[in-house]
Simulated assay, not measured.
Amino acid sequence: MTDTRDDGRGRREIRALDSGALRALAHPVRVRLYDILSQQGPQTASTLAAMTGESSGSTSYHLRALAKHDLIREVPDRGTARERWWERPSGGVSFPGPDTLRTPAGRAASQVVMGEFLERRHEQLMRFVGSTLRDELDPWAENALITSATVSLTVEQLGEVNARIQRVIDDVVDEYRIDPNAEPTPTADRRIVSLRAEAFPITTESD
């Protein structure tokens, strides 16, 4: 699984999370905080508490745990001693890696993180579907894409298909990259859009 945040300058480095960073992220609240920082830009413990329903003391604790493994960082030259701002570094992260899959703890942490990420994406998708069915002639709904297909592939072909999809996403990120000096605040004519692709072998009932 890869999650990318472009740096606004065309550089896209992918960091493979080691077992320590993955275990630090393997908590539902931390995944949620990390994802909010990825999608909505810099936040404070207080703003994150308001978004998540957690206390500011709880969000501060989890933010420090994420920062300890360089998953997030304090925004330089912003905030005060009482109110610190946090951001997710640019670039992408990928997991699980070979080292994390060698141990039961690494595999368990990978399952937690991937499960939480995918559950959040599914919740966002279902909220969009629900609002779309309520609103008539919504141009955002008309131009959104929700599609699925089933094909027969070899493992080599699956790898090539995924590489082609990733190249398309990379091209889109390059063309419409977020300004690193501006917070990605939605406006009437511009919104943060989630790009998501899935291609994996289906497990049949007999497997």
Rank of each mutant, 00 (worst) to 15 (best):
A141E: 00
R177Y: 01
A26T: 00
N181G: 13
G106P: 06
L71M: 09
W85N: 04
R164D: 09
P104Y: 01
E83P: 00
E123Y: 01
N162W: 00
Y34L: 12
S110I: 13
L17N: 04
Q39C: 08
L25W: 04
Q111D: 11
R15K: 11
L125F: 00
R32L: 07
L63K: 09
R12V: 07
R190Y: 05
M114K: 11
I192D: 07
R23Y: 01
E142H: 12
N162P: 07
E123S: 05
I146P: 00
E74C: 03
W85H: 15
P180S: 03
R121V: 13
E13F: 01
P186T: 08
R177C: 11
V151R: 08
P76S: 06
D179I: 09
I165L: 13
I72V: 15
T147V: 04
E116I: 00
T4E: 04
T185E: 15
P89D: 02
S56Q: 12
G79M: 04
R134A: 05
T147W: 04
T150F: 14
A109M: 07
D170F: 10
A197D: 03
P98F: 02
R78M: 14
T80H: 12
A144V: 01
T44C: 13
S94F: 04
L145H: 10
W86I: 09
D207E: 14
V112S: 05
E83T: 15
A199Q: 06
V161K: 14
A109L: 05
Q40A: 14
P180Y: 03
E198H: 14
V129H: 06
R73S: 11
Q157P: 00
P186I: 06
P42V: 07
T185K: 12
G20E: 15
T80S: 15
V93L: 07
P180R: 00
A197W: 02
T100F: 01
